[in-house]
């Protein structure tokens, strides 16, 4: 069953002189592990934000979790986990890891409703899944970049998402943490939750079929299944063919 179905979408930022995403189509089924690669400014983050309704789709149709993204962006965001790229929390941020993870449930809960026992249990499961039980009472601003990254992944897992999207989730993580989280994402895929990852480093990818999407200048230049070992070579080749290479 297609959980993501994009047909010829265009996305542009207000004031931009041209579309960032151009005539892009993508189809993602239940339980797919999708790696999105490509050079800087290829439109990878914009693609994720378009699917979340955070950036306006100007043309084409986009359906996520069976919902029209342009009409039901709020509802889509309640069902999609999205770990954003580059966040910073100052050391005085007055929120503990436990509170931040719980916030992942708030969208689904809706206005004026208080978290129930099930919500606390979901947050607790997310914390254990990511392995940050020992950090729950610490304030997020006092953690390392990697620990903050794990907290934000748990925040999105607490939502019990139908689709998981992660923008460079390994950027602050050491090799062990990367491997551990790849295991978490592999479990998500096994549970039928499609997981889309924008990445620049491809070591430690799980040994499952990978739906590889390579982007360049706002369009998809490669969209096929491959193995973990083939990912980096295909991306390098695609970048070379299209005349632009990733910074890594």
């Amino acid at each position: 069953m297609a959980l993501i179905d994009l047909k010829g979408i265009y996305t542009a930022y207000e004031g931009g002189d041209k579309a960032v995403i151009k005539n892009l189509s993508l189809h993602v089924d239940q339980g797919e592990y999708v790696v999105i690669g490509g050079p800087n400014s290829a439109g990878k983050t914009t693609l994720l934000e378009s699917m979340n309704g955070l950036v306006k789709i100007t043309h084409g149709s986009a359906s996520v979790c069976g919902l029209d993204v342009s009409r039901s962006a709020d509802e889509v965001r309640k069902r999609v986990g999205y770990v954003i790229q580059n966040f910073y929390f100052d050391p005085f941020t007055p929120f503990t890891v436990e509170q931040v993870v719980m916030m992942g449930r708030f969208g689904r809960l809706g206005l004026l409703k208080q978290p129930s026992k099930q919500d606390y249990e979901a947050a607790d499961r997310a914390i254990r899944r990511v392995g940050i039980e020992d950090l729950v009472h610490k304030t997020i601003g006092t953690l390392s970049g990697g620990q903050q990254q794990k907290t934000m992944i748990a925040h999105n897992l607490a939502k019990e998402p139908e689709v998981m999207m992660l923008d460079e989730p390994f950027s602050n993580l050491d090799f062990h943490a990367r491997e551990y989280l790849q295991g978490v994402f592999k479990d998500l895929v096994r549970d039928g939750i499609p997981t889309l990852i924008v990445a620049h480093a491809f070591d430690g990818l799980p040994d499952i079929p990978i739906h590889l999407v390579v982007m360049n200048s706002g369009t998809i230049t490669y969209d096929m299944n491959c193995t973990a070992g083939e990912v980096e070579d295909i991306i390098r080749k695609e970048c070379k063919v299209n005349g632009r290479c990733s910074s890594r």
């Binding site: 955070l54 709020d74 509802e75 954003i84 992942g104 708030f106 969208g107 689904r108 925040h155 939502k159």
Partner: peptide, 8 residues
Amino acid sequence: KIAEAAGI
């Protein structure tokens, strides 16, 4: 931004 992405 994180609150918005969470569907709030």
